[in-house]
Every structure is written in structure tokens, then in C-alpha cells.
Design a protein around this nucleic acid. Structure first.
Length: 543
DNA sequence: TTAGGGTTAG
């Protein structure tokens, strides 16, 4: 059944290309099979072609009989905004169309969502205009302001974040400790701690700080590698009549572990206890994670004794970290005991991550049957998303690429209802190529394209080499097409953004490890190489 | 968004 739905959507796509109708049809055809009729959501989405302006979206919806007969609800508007969370023109168009319908009024949640979408897409002027509109309707909440300030700061416009705070009165909100903390936290999270400090000194005579205010600074200074200022902030806290709390100390301790300054961390751990502010479960979990990261497994396990000695109660996240540590330390039996005996005894329930840690540990130690048992346990206990990547890797490592792998994939899709995502397809295609099963690898390649997932550049390259060796000429041609498309889309996007001076955002905003929106994971170096390539071509006068 | 991630070289 799923197969037919995909085939039909693919066929339509091939016939008419990636236009509105095929996009909408694909999304509704690949929706859960029980809903076979077009929902209101699908009807509206089908009327919004890719890449048109917000006014065109409004016109397209207004001119459509089916759209105009839909009974609007805030749930439908929320779903539409969510659907267009990465497409501000469609989101804004839908929003304007909805409010033009008689009797319909937007909720604060819908406004907040729109503000966030505009901010995320760097439409700062439009975001501000919507904020003002909200102010006139008395719809601005602290959450709205938080989003606006964070989006300004995230776009490198921290002064605008401060202006937003200054104008809180006109938006119907108070400038108080809570809203000030929001502003200071926004600035500190964007590494503008010194600027936050200046703002704070200006506001302090009018708004009294609380412990939260100082904790924001402690975190900010630590993030900037300025632990002396963090310590000094603890003193300042006391001077202002606020007592340093477990968060104040734990933040600095975490920083010391991060820097591998273990003795300093232990000193502070003793100090906080002496000050009548004992470490809690978050403090211990953080310490254990840091020590495990530095491969100090014995030291990490000592922390558990220390935690127990002061009667601190474990929770799920603590056990997740402990199981991970034990697995890394090679103590599989002990980890199994924690999972099977200790957790039930202490009444702490495992979550999806706990089980996934167990799966990864068993696979790492060649115990795939036990990993499968965990998957079965997850099925029974209703935990979703078992991580099958470790098991897939075991299949390739042991050369078990026939029955076991097929059964696993079948279970993944049909029993656990997991989608094969880009990383799973990459893993499978690479693994099958290495196992000399390139026909199967190629059929997966076709399948992923059919699903609308674009293969990574490396996947194309590897598969292309393999199919050429096997003289699969049609396949080679199709892969080359995809590869060329890849090259043109990635290079033109990277080129445009590099010309605008956003080299890092050419990859993805601030985190260079995240995937390139909609195109899949492209290696960072590849994109930078393409940027350079194009810059070079410009200099030569070819462009 | 005042602290806690989990396993991965495709």
C-alpha cells in the first residue's frame, strides 16, 4: 500500500515537476493511510506554490472556492504556521489570509509563532511590525518579547534587543526583574556579557536583581572562559543580599571539568557543601558526563559513591549517564544490573535514551541479540524511536547483510513506524557498497530520491564509482544527474551567501555541523571549497 | 534558554 502511494506521488512528480500540486499531493499521500480524504490543511497547502510572495499567497487563497469554504480554527492556523515554519512568505501569507476571513481573530500563540518564524528567517523589520501590531491588540506576552529579543541577538543585532526592552512600556509590559533577566540572558547567551553588564549597571538603580540575575552572568562569564569574573559574581551576589545557590556553584564546577581542572572543581564541590548548599543530582550528572568525556571512567564512577554518600536521589538522566559511563568503561554486566535491577528498585523509569544507550553498548560489545531484546522491551513499554543505527552497523561489520538486515529494516518501517532518514540511507548505501551489493544500494538510492530526500555528495560519489565498475550505465547516468544538481544547488546557495558576507551562514547559521536546510548534509569543507571556487571565478571575470 | 546529550565516522 505504502509502495503504491509513493509510486503515484513519484509519477505525478515526474509528470509535472515539483509544482504546488505534486508537493501537496505528496504530503497528503504520504500522510497516515487512514486519512485518505483531503484535509483542510492539505487543501490550503495545495494552493500555495513554492517561492511566491506573501501577497500572492493571500490572493491565491482568496481566489479559491475550496479555501474560502473552510471553517477556520486556531488549530488549523497553528498547523499551517508549523508547516511553513521555514518559509516566512507562505507563513505570513496564510496569516494575513486567515485574519481577512470574517469573524476570525488570531490567538496570541499564532502571533508568537509568526514572530518567531519571521525572526528565524531574519525578516527583522517585518517581525518588529508584527510585534507593534500585537501591542495594539494587547497581545504581547513575556514569551513574545523573549522570542523577539533572542531573534535580534541571534541575528547580531543585540542593540535592537535592548531597544525592545526599553520599549516594553508601549507594548503593555513592565520593566521588572523578570523581563530584565530575560534581556540579560539573551545578551549573555550571544556572548555579549560585557554589554549585558553595562545594561545591568544602568538598570540596577531602578530594578532590583535576584539570584537568577547573577546566575545568568556566572554562566555567561564561564562560557567566555572568564572564570575569575564568575567567581567575582558570586561575591557580588552576596553583596547584593542574594545567596549563591546550587546553580551558581554547579555552573562553575562544570566549567572546571570542561577545562580538565579537576582539583579546582573538587575544591568548589567541598566549598559549596561547607556553605550549606550541597550539590544535587544535576551537579553529579554533569560531573560524571564530563569525566566520561575525558575517559576518566574510574573517577566518574567514584562520583556515584560521593552522590550516594550524601543521600542524593538518582533520576532518569543520571542513570542514562551512568549506563553510558559503564558501557564506555567496558562494564557491560554492571550496566545491565543498573538497567534491570537498580532502576526498577529505585522506581526510576527508563526513557528512550536509556534504551538507546543499552542498544549501543550491546552492539559495541558484539551482543546484538541482547540489543534486539531491548528493542522488544521498548515495543512492549511503548517507548518510541529505537536507535537501530548501531545494529545496522553490526550487520555490515559481521557481513550479515541478507536476512537479518532485511528483517531489521522491515521491522523499522512496519513495526516501529520509523522513517528512513538521510543518515540511515547513507549508512545503508555505504555499507552495501562495501559489501559489494551495489544493486541493492542503488535501489535504496532510488527509494530515497522517491521519498524526496536528497543524497549527500559523498553518497553519490561512492555509489557512482561502484555502479560504473559494474557497468550499470543507466544507474550511473541517474546518479550523475543528482550529483550535478547537488553541485549546482549547493554551490549557487553557498556562492550567493558568501557574496553577502555570510560565509558561516552559508553552511547553517552558527552551528557548522548542522545540515544545510533542505539539501541534506554537505560537508562543511566542501561548501567552503565551493565558495572559494566561485570567488575565484568572479575574480577571473567569468561571472 | 538559570544546570543535565549521546556513540559516530556514512
Amino acid at each position: 500500500m505504502i509502495f503504491h502511494v509513493e509510486k503515484l506521488a513519484k509519477h505525478i512528480h515526474n509528470l509535472v515537476g515539483p509544482t504546488i500540486s505534486s508537493r501537496a499531493l505528496y504530503s497528503c499521500l504520504s500522510a497516515p493511510l487512514e486519512s485518505k480524504t483531503l484535509s483542510d490543511l492539505d487543501i490550503v497547502i495545495a494552493k500555495i506554490p513554492v517561492g511566491i510572495s506573501e501577497d500572492e499567497v493571500v490572493r491565491s487563497l482568496l481566489n479559491d472556492q475550496a479555501c474560502n469554504s473552510i471553517e477556520l480554527s486556531s488549530e488549523l492556523v497553528d498547523k499551517l504556521l508549523h508547516r511553513f515554519k521555514d518559509d516566512w512568505k507562505s507563513a505570513l501569507g496564510v496569516f494575513r489570509w486567515a485574519e481577512s476571513r470574517s469573524g476570525y481573530r488570531h490567538t496570541q500563540e499564532a502571533y508568537d509563532m509568526l514572530v518567531d518564524i519571521l525572526g528565524k528567517m531574519k525578516q527583522m523589520g517585518k517581525m518588529k511590525a508584527v510585534l507593534e501590531e500585537m501591542g495594539q491588540c494587547q497581545l504581547v506576552g513575556l514569551g513574545t518579547v523573549a522570542k523577539v529579543m533572542r531573534r535580534f541577538a541571534g541575528a547580531g543585532q543585540w542593540e535592537e534587543a535592548v531597544t525592545t526592552f526599553d520599549e516594553l512600556g508601549t507594548l503593555g509590559l513592565d520593566k521588572n526583574t523578570e523581563s530584565m533577566n530575560l534581556l540579560l540572558d539573551t545578551l549573555c547567551k550571544e556572548n555579549k556579557v560585557e554589554q549585558a553588564r553595562e545594561v545591568f549597571l544602568e538598570l540596577k538603580p531602578h530594578i532590583s536583581p535576584n539570584a537568577h540575575t547573577f546566575n545568568i552572568f556566572i554562566h555567561g562569564w564561564c562560557k567566555m572562559n572568564r572564570v575569575d569574573e564568575a567567581h567575582w559574581t558570586i561575591q557580588e551576589m552576596r553583596g547584593n543580599g542574594c545567596l549563591p545557590c546550587v546553580i551558581s556553584y554547579s555552573t562553575i564546577i562544570q566549567f572546571y571539568y570542561w577545562q580538565s581542572k579537576f582539583s579546582k572543581a573538587y575544591e568548589l564541590l567541598d566549598e559549596m557543601q561547607a556553605q550549606g548548599c550541597p550539590p544535587n543530582i544535576v551537579t553529579f550528572t554533569t560531573i560524571m558526563c564530563s569525566l566520561t568525556k575525558s575517559e576518566e571512567f574510574e573517577e566518574a564512577l567514584h562520583i556515584v559513591d560521593r552522590m550516594r554518600s550524601i543521600g542524593c536521589k538518582p533520576d532518569t538522566l543520571f542513570y542514562n549517564a551512568l549506563i553510558h559511563t559503564l558501557g564506555r568503561a567496558g562494564r557491560v554486566e554492571k550496566a545491565v544490573r543498573v538497567f534491570e535491577v537498580e532502576m526498577p528498585n529505585t522506581g526510576v523509569s527508563p526513557n528512550t535514551s536509556t534504551c538507546n544507550s543499552m542498544i549501543a553498548m550491546f552492539c559495541h560489545h558484539g551482543q546484538e541479540q541482547k540489543a534486539l531484546n531491548i528493542i522488544r522491551y521498548m515495543e512492549k513499554s511503548g517507548l518510541c524511536k529505537p536507535d537501530v543505527h548501531p545494529l545496522l552497523k553490526v550487520c555490515f561489520k559481521t557481513g550479515n547483510t541478507d536476512c537479518f538486515l532485511s528483517k531489521l529494516l522491515d521491522d523499522m518501517v512496519n513495526k516501529h513506524h520509523l522513517f528512513l532518514d538521510i543518515s540511515t540511507y547513507a549508512l545503508l548505501i555505504h555499507g552495501l557498497c562495501r559489501a559489494n551489493k551495489c544493486e541493492r544500494a542503488y535501489s535504496l538510492f532510488e527509494e530515497m530520491i522517491g521519498q524526496g530526500i536528497s543524497p549527500r555528495y559523498q553518497t553519490c560519489r561512492l555509489l557512482l564509482d561502484e555502479v560504473k565498475q559494474k557497468n550499470m550505465y543507466d544507474a550511473a547516468e541517474r546518479i550523475e544527474d543528482k550529483e550535478n544538481w547537488h553541485f549546482s544547488v549547493v554551490s549557487s546557495k553557498a556562492y550567493q551567501q558568501s557574496r553577502q558576507g555570510h560565509r558561516t551562514s552559508a553552511i547553517t547559521g552558527s552551528n557548522p555541523n548542522k545540515s544545510f536546510g533542505g539539501i541534506g548534509n554537505i560537508h562543511v569543507r566542501k561548501v567552503l571549497m565551493l565558495c572559494r571556487l566561485h570567488t575565484k571565478t568572479v575574480n577571473c571575470g567569468t561571472y
